[in-house]
Write a protein that binds this DNA or RNA. Structure first.
Length: 151
DNA sequence: GCCAACGTTGGC
DNA sequence: GCCAACGTTGGC
């Protein structure tokens, strides 16, 4: 079992949007970064733990505990010319972009970035590193436990 | 809106 | 394969 942190812009897809969806599950559309894609393709398994993170908003932070709810499969938005995620260079017979389904298990009170930074045991988390822009990062088990256990 | 950091593109 | 230019992310 592995653990991950996944960023979502709440204006795009907030934790409440996910909770309003059937089974509190959504396809994680729009990842257009190879490293993040490879984490989904090669690293994730159904049942992996996910820290659901709100980014590019007033109070960035971890807002829910979630889980990986499917294996990786092609992101349909890459083939949709009307989608902002459309990729003209991706072919159906050889999809460039993948996604997984993510299911929110429990909404938590926002653990904000400043709060995360206050905790020395979390200092090594990739999401806290300067210059980090990856929308999906692996989370080490001790970090996961430190965050989830407190809830 | 600014800007640091990083990824991608494309000329050579 | 190098690297400058450009685009994007995301906190502030």
């Amino acid at each position: 079992m592995n653990y991950w942190l996944m960023k979502s812009e709440p204006e795009e897809c907030s934790v409440d949007d996910v909770l309003a969806a059937p089974d509190a599950t959504v396809p994680w559309v729009g990842v257009r970064n190879y490293q993040a894609r490879n984490f989904m393709r090669d690293g994730m398994q159904v049942g992996d733990g996910v820290l659901f993170y709100h980014s590019s908003c007033a109070e960035p932070g971890i807002v829910a505990i979630a889980r990986v709810a499917s294996g990786a499969y092609p992101d349909p938005t890459q083939f949709d010319p009307t989608s902002p995620y459309y990729d003209a260079k991706s072919k159906r017979e050889e999809p460039r972009w993948l996604l997984v389904d993510v299911q929110v298990l429990k909404k938590i009170s926002n653990i904000t970035l400043p709060t995360l930074r206050e905790r020395p045991e979390l200092a090594d988390m990739l999401v806290l590193k300067k210059g980090n822009r990856l929308s999906i990062t692996p989370v080490e088990a001790p970090h996961w436990k430190a965050i989830v256990k407190a809830k």
